[in-house]
Amino acid sequence: MTDGVMQGAELEREVEQLHAASYGWALACCRRDRDDAEEVLQNVYVKILEGKARFDGRSSLKTWLFAVIRRTAAAHVRRRIVRELLLAKWGRQELEPVMPNPHRSAETSQTSATLLDALQRLARRQREVLELVFYHDLTIEEAAVALNVSIGSARVHYQRGKKQLLAQLDGKLAP
């Protein structure tokens, strides 16, 4: 993990190393929709390349990058909801329900599908903290920075979320 301000080729190299993890986090922020995740991740990279998102070294690159991905995904989802509402109003089309769909990303094992189902039943913050800690190996403190919440709040979300997740998965996962 590299701290400090990075630019150009060094930044590109570091971001490339985090690419797979970034894509996984983008998937989580886009309800597991691969197309949306790819679009969001490209928008994030464009923001970095154009200097609209600047890494100032106050946190780790991964934490900063995840925070940018989360904000970009939130804006992307908001735009899509507005667009769908307008289309439904003007085009008299049926509004597609904006529901999380863990099975939109194909090729997941039974264990992964069960875990995703259980995750979708959690509150958003709880789900995000757990994914950052268990999926992306961030500490609770780093997760708090990525989610822009206080450490105390992140701890509470983590404890409550994990308790609920364990209860939901109890006996459902193959040994």
Partner: peptide
């Protein structure tokens, strides 16, 4: 829980663009 999340990560990052 860690093992389940590792499996999910493996599944999802198998086809990274």
């Amino acid at each position: 829980l860690h093992a389940a999340f590792r499996e999910l990560r493996r599944d999802e990052t198998a086809h990274v663009p």
